[in-house]
Structure formats: structure tokens, C-alpha cells
């Protein structure tokens, strides 16, 4: 046995990254715990919420419950708000992640020289950046993946009256792989801003602004990411609620829309775009670093 006893837990660069960013790690843990607790609670009240949101009759007949009994159930409001809160928080995660990555993760270390401290501690700049990106990326993926899956579990049958229609911006982003890749893009954009500006506060600002731009550009153009379906009938018709309507002609005989089945193609295309941006930003960050250091 060698003389020095190894302490347990993570080692090397991973340990260094976690220790330097302990506040962020604690924040990550708290956010994940809060989201998990909330979603488990939502799952627990999901059945009651559905009982509070059913067709009713007054008085009860034909198997319909009486409306007064249904109306007395308020748990469906709690359920709707709880699900919406977690979903919105999940889709907004990209913004604090981008600001943090630009400011605290990369910008501050370059500004006050602690990055150079790491580079003189037998860690090459490229490995330093790789660790600075990989550790948060793994933790972010774990958290957003968990919350997304728990969210799908808590949503159960996806009753749009309770959890919103699939094409609502928050619902769309929070119920598929987009929920995982957006924060990763925020991480990469923030890190690139940090490397380019080399100062904490400007990098935090630019990282945040880049994330804001990406988010809004894709939200405004989401419906164009997959060809719409056109349906035309003489005499007019109605579309089901699950159709994401784009437009009608003046006489209401022809409509373009995305049917529900377009959810996955739209998700895949958007995920691909966001991942490509994240990868491009990461490559650019490494290129900037390589050009600047030997």
C-alpha cells in the first residue's frame, strides 16, 4: 500500500471544479430537490385533480357527477399551477445557466487569474476547459433529465385542461429532449462569452443576452421547423383542440396546422438545432483558448 491515503469522493479536476463552484452546486441541489418534491406531490394529487375537472350535470344524472360536488374540488387548480411552475422553471433554466457559465465558471477565473493558477498546476488549458464544461454538463443533464421525466410522470394522461396543450411554448419545451439541450446550449454560450471577454460581469451579461436571443428566435420560428398540414373542405370544418393552428383562409374552408403527431419531429429538429449551436459554441470556445495559450 502506498503511504498517502486517498480521501473518498471525486478526485482531481472533477473535485476541483465541484469545490470551486460549491455555491452553484448547492443551488443545483436545492433546485432539483424542490422540483422533485413538487412533482411527486403533483403526482400524488393528480387523481383528485382529475376528479375536479370532469364533465358534470346538475343534478347528477347519466353517470355524470353533480357540478356542485365537482366545483367543490379545488385541488385541480393547485395541480395546474404546480405543473406549470416546474415546467416554466425548467424552460427558463437556460438563462441563469448562461449567466453563471459566462460569469462565475469562466469569466471570473480568467479575470482574476485563477485559471492560470490551474494551468500551472499540471492541468493543460484544454483539459481545464473540458472539466469546467463536462462537470456542469453532466450535472445539468442529470437534473433536467430527471425533472423532465418526473414531469411526464406527474402529467399522467396530459389532460390539456390541466397541464396545457402540447404546443404551448413552455409545455413544448418542457416535455421533451429540448428541456435537456437548452441549458447545455446556455452553458456553451456562456463559456464562449467568458473566454472571449475574459471578464466576469460583461461575460455574464453577454451569455444571458445570447441565451435570450436563441430562446426567442426559436420560439418565434418553431412552427416553421416542420412542414405544416393543410386541410381544405368545402363548407367549413372544425379542427380538434390538439391541432396547433397556423392559419385559415377567409372563408374558413382551408386551414394549415400541426397535428399532435408533429410533436416529435418538431422536437427532434429543434433539439438538433440547439445541440448544433451548443457544439459550435463549445468548439469555438476551445479554438479561442488554443489560440490564446501555447
Amino acid at each position: 500500500m502506498t503511504g498517502v491515503r486517498a480521501p473518498r469522493g471525486p478526485r482531481g479536476l472533477i473535485w476541483a471544479t465541484l469545490r470551486v463552484h460549491r455555491t452553484a452546486l448547492i443551488f443545483w441541489g436545492l433546485a432539483l430537490t424542490a422540483a422533485t418534491v413538487c412533482l411527486v406531490w403533483m403526482y400524488a394529487i393528480a387523481d383528485d385533480a382529475r376528479r375536479g375537472n370532469v364533465p358534470c350535470a346538475e343534478p347528477a344524472h347519466d353517470g355524470y357527477p353533480s357540478c356542485s360536488s365537482v366545483e367543490a374540488i379545488t385541488v385541480d387548480d393547485t395541480y395546474t399551477q404546480g405543473i406549470a411552475l416546474v415546467t416554466t422553471a425548467l424552460t427558463y433554466a437556460i438563462f441563469p445557466v448562461a449567466a453563471w457559465a459566462g460569469g462565475a465558471l469562466v469569466g471570473r477565473e480568467l479575470e482574476n487569474g485563477t485559471a492560470r493558477l490551474a494551468w500551472t498546476q499540471s492541468v493543460t488549458p484544454a483539459r481545464w476547459l473540458a472539466a469546467r464544461l463536462a462537470v456542469p454538463a453532466v450535472l445539468l443533464t442529470a437534473a433536467t433529465g430527471t425533472v423532465t421525466l418526473l414531469g411526464l410522470w406527474a402529467r399522467q394522461d396530459d389532460d390539456p385542461n390541466l397541464v396545457g396543450d402540447w404546443y404551448y411554448p413552455d409545455v413544448f419545451l418542457g416535455t421533451g429532449p429540448t428541456a435537456v439541450v437548452y441549458p447545455l446550449a446556455g452553458l456553451a454560450l456562456g463559456a464562449l462569452a467568458g473566454l472571449l471577454l475574459r471578464r466576469a460581469l460583461p461575460a455574464a451579461g453577454v451569455g444571458f443576452a445570447a441565451a435570450l436571443l436563441l430562446y426567442n428566435l426559436l420560439e418565434r420560428n418553431r412552427e416553421t421547423l416542420w412542414p405544416t398540414v393543410t386541410r381544405a373542405e368545402a363548407g367549413g370544418f372544425e379542427l380538434p383542440r390538439s391541432a396547433w393552428q397556423m392559419g385559415w383562409n377567409d372563408s374558413l374552408t382551408r386551414a394549415t396546422y400541426h397535428p399532435r403527431s408533429h410533436f416529435w419531429p418538431l422536437q427532434y429538429v429543434e433539439t438538433g438545432i440547439v445541440l448544433a449551436i451548443a457544439a459550435a459554441a463549445t468548439l469555438a470556445a476551445f479554438a479561442v483558448l488554443r489560440r490564446r495559450t501555447p
Binding site: 358534470c56 346538475e58 343534478p59 357540478c67 356542485s68 365537482v70 366545483e71 367543490a72
Partner: peptide
């Protein structure tokens, strides 16, 4: 009181 949702059902309204 909370609305018992009788809508136009006078019997229901009277009941409540």
C-alpha cells in the same frame, strides 16, 4: 357561498 353550479335549474337553486 361557493357557487353550486345549478345554472338555470330552479329546483337546484332553491335547494341551495
Amino acid at each position: 357561498v361557493a357557487d353550486p353550479i345549478c345554472v338555470d335549474n330552479t329546483k337546484c337553486l332553491a335547494e341551495h
